[in-house]
Design a protein around this nucleic acid. Structure first.
Lengths: 207, 207
DNA sequence: GTCTATACGTCGATAGAC
DNA sequence: GTCTATCGACGTATAGAC
């Protein structure tokens, strides 16, 4: 469908960057296909060999575009997340809580997404300088910062109570959203949306 | 130090249960040693063969007491958690939030504990009838129930606002605690204790 | 009952041919 | 750029020593 050559960036340009020196278009193609594999087969069948077979290449071929299985998995998650980035697609009209709620609902709608996320977080905690570790450390920092800013603005507008630290609430909201998605997968009766929305009540300005 | 025979329960009793028919005392010994291995070597070296080597037996020996590596890991977590069970060791005098805060602080003080927890949760999400899946599904249900009851009592006592559902707050508190421990491991500057304690403010009765 | 030895299939990763 | 071949380590299973 897509012709790799047409999408190839200037080698002189990508050569400078270094990390993209291995062919970008084919890389994207692999990420798309690998993402589908995850959606269809859940979090199982995530071995390099199985992914390669589903794509139609040898597992060694995948390692030409990604230095390791872990880097591939991180790239798959990053790729899937970027296609539906929630933090930047809403204006100031939507509340912080609703940003998290919407992101969580989208997440749960993609089979295998929370499994992949949790798996990668687990390896991020285990190995200190690993690709997962680097990715999630900066991801959490970025999301916390964005949410903190949004909450601070809401406090100044008077829509969020101002007797709590925006940075604390940001970390709390993200943690609650992550943790609730896990609990929901293990017990779907907990009604994630309404439960997370309870924060709206907790954060309402005091009369 | 301990003599296995003295700690052996009546074979007639454990025979009925079925699951403990493989020697209880030695099993406990293995769990203790395996727990130490986790504490010392972090979340790495968690393969059957490495654990076995650290204990001083062949890896096949471990499978005499545990049906699979996953069951061993679950048992190690369960064993370590039971030694410092937080939910039942406090009376009604301590608040729900503080129960969670204390549990989280203890957790973070044990190296490898959150890594092991997160790893097992990841496999619990991935494979539906797996040992991890069964264990964590019932564990979350139990903890939610206990916390819900405690919160409902606090509401009737007037120490927690009564315009929110106790069950929702329970799920939210557990999720926030789990998520914050992960964030703290990736960014220790977030001050988990104070951040989680913010819930005390959010849950204070409305004036 | 407790354990060692061993074998099987799969894994991530690497080397080298084309 | 992609393949095959190969490596060491893994989880699991079984046979059999004691």
């Amino acid at each position: 469908m897509t012709s790799p050559e047409n999408l190839m960036p200037d080698p002189a340009v990508i050569g400078r960057a270094g990390s993209y020196s291995k062919g970008v278009a084919r890389r994207q193609e692999i990420l798309d296909r690998a993402g589908e594999v995850f959606r269809e087969r859940g979090a199982e069948g995530t071995s390099l060999r199985q992914i390669a077979q589903a794509i139609g290449v040898s597992h060694a071929a995948l390692l030409h575009y990604f230095e390791s299985r872990e880097q591939l998995l991180v790239a798959v998650y990053e790729h899937a997340e970027s296609k539906r980035d929630t933090s930047r697609m809403y204006g100031d009209s939507i509340s912080s809580v609703d940003v998290l709620v919407k992101a969580a609902m989208i997440n749960l709608g993609v089979p295998g997404m929370v499994e992949l996320y949790t798996t990668l977080v687990a390896t991020a905690l285990a190995v200190d300088g690993s690709p997962s570790n680097t990715f999630f450390a900066s991801r959490f920092a970025r999301i916390r910062d964005e949410l903190t800013e949004r909450l601070a603005r809401e406090q100044s507008e008077g829509t969020v109570r101002d007797d709590v630290e925006p940075a604390d609430i940001a970390a709390l909201l993200i943690a609650a959203s992550d943790g609730l998605q896990i609990q929901w997968l293990l017990e779907p009766s907990i009604e994630l949306e309404r439960t997370l929305e309870t924060f709206t009540v907790l954060l309402a300005p005091r009369p």
